[in-house]
Simulated assay, not measured.
Amino acid sequence: MTNQPNIASISVIIPVKNRAGLLEITLDNIFAQTLLPAQVIVVDDGSTDHLPQVIAKYEGRVTCIPNEGKGPGAARNTGLKIADTAFVKFFDSDDVMTKNCLQAQYEVLQKTGAPLVYSPYIHAIEQPDGSWLRQGAIVQYQPFPATQTLRACMAYNFFTVIPGFMFRREFLEKLGAWRTDITAYEDWDYLWRIGKLCPNPVHTNQAAMIYRLHGAQTTGAHFDNTQRDKEKVICLKDALAAAQDLSPLDKLALTNILWKTLKSLAHLPEYQAVLAQYDSPAMPFISLYLRLKNKLERLKTHSDWTTMHGVSNSEEVWGQYAKLL
């Protein structure tokens, strides 16, 4: 480790598969941070593109290793095995963050002693001139309500992206490894497990990350809606089996998400019996109530998000973030 003041005990772990061109922009963004990480670990999940040429440009600054399994969950586990820092940020090969992000999150963790911190994220498209075109609201500009737990919010379709977090290493050791049997909803499962150990994570909006919109959003593969729904069922069933910390109403809301997902798979014979386990005459009415509630919430936020997502539509706020990209 170096003692230079602009380098901190942070590892940034990035899974990648056939995204060499996108990864270069992500790495440039990381090395432009006001506080540099001690380690940048790229885990190659079987790329066949020009990844070696891109990595060569960062010789001595990036460690590139092959994935010990398959998929983004296994890649993050592989990267974590060689990370030897006190703090860890899981990042994606196609995203960027404001140039103060590592510093802002690191300082919050140092000041509060919290196990993790999360920040806003913004869907955006990169323009030919290198600028970013925002798509929709700034999500999680404010934290989710302090009166609710992370898991209780997730029961009503709350989600915030894992690359928006920074973790203490010892917290990740308690949390356990990423799931490797799924590749589209492994982040939802990870967030659910985070909610068990840390029901109310610390938040800062002094920095943000850009969730880059492009044609291949899933690491290493394209997934159709059926495959996504199948993985969603796996995660939701596991979550409900371990939902003792939810109130009866919250558990019912989570069950409704599973019921709706199973309805979308009801054309497959193997899911018809599973649907019957969660079906009831009341479920359509519960689903209607929750849909209407969400619609009213979205009207309040003037966005596609409900109030618990803490959105901001401010052009001024976006402009401040954009200056730091």
Rank of each mutant, 00 (worst) to 15 (best):
P115G: 08
P115R: 07
L116Y: 04
L116G: 05
Y118N: 03
Y118S: 06
S119C: 10
I122K: 04
I122Q: 00
I122V: 11
H123G: 12
I125L: 13
E126G: 10
E126P: 07
E126C: 11
Q127A: 12
Q127F: 12
Q127S: 14
Q127K: 15
P128H: 10
D129G: 11
D129W: 11
D129I: 14
G130L: 13
G130P: 07
G130C: 14
G130F: 12
S131L: 11
S131P: 06
W132H: 11
W132G: 03
W132C: 03
W132K: 11
L133T: 09
R134I: 01
R134M: 00
Q135V: 15
Q135E: 15
G136A: 00
G136L: 02
G136N: 00
I138Q: 11
I138L: 14
Q140N: 15
Q140L: 11
Q140D: 13
Y141M: 10
Y141I: 06
Y141W: 04
Y141T: 07
Y141E: 04
Q142E: 14
Q142V: 06
P143M: 06
P143A: 05
F144R: 08
P145D: 02
P145N: 02
A146Y: 05
T147C: 13
Q148S: 14
Q148G: 04
T149V: 07
T149P: 06
T149S: 15
T149Y: 06
L150F: 00
L150M: 05
R151W: 08
R151Y: 03
R151L: 09
C153H: 04
M154I: 06
M154Q: 00
A155L: 09
A155V: 00
A155N: 07
A155E: 02
Y156M: 15
F159V: 12
F159R: 15
V161K: 14
V161G: 14
V161T: 13
I162K: 05
I162L: 13
I162R: 05
I162A: 02
P163S: 09
P163L: 07
G164M: 06
G164I: 03
G164D: 13
F165H: 04
F167M: 10
F167K: 08
F167E: 02
R168M: 08
R168T: 15
R169F: 04
R169N: 09
E170M: 08
E170V: 11
F171K: 08
F171I: 12
L172V: 10
L172T: 04
K174M: 14
K174Y: 09
K174S: 15
K174G: 02
W178V: 00
W178T: 03
R179V: 05
R179M: 01
R179I: 08
R179T: 09
T180A: 05
D181H: 10
T183A: 15
T183D: 09
T183I: 11
A184C: 08
Y185P: 00
E186F: 15
E186W: 12
W188N: 11
W188Q: 13
D189L: 05
D189W: 05
Y190D: 01
Y190Q: 09
W192K: 01
W192H: 06
W192P: 02
R193N: 07
R193T: 01
R193A: 04
G195D: 03
G195V: 05
K196Q: 07
L197S: 02
P199L: 10
N200R: 15
N200D: 08
N200P: 05
P201R: 10
H203Q: 13
T204Q: 08
N205K: 12
Q206G: 10
A207Q: 00
A207I: 07
A207D: 03
A207T: 04
A208V: 02
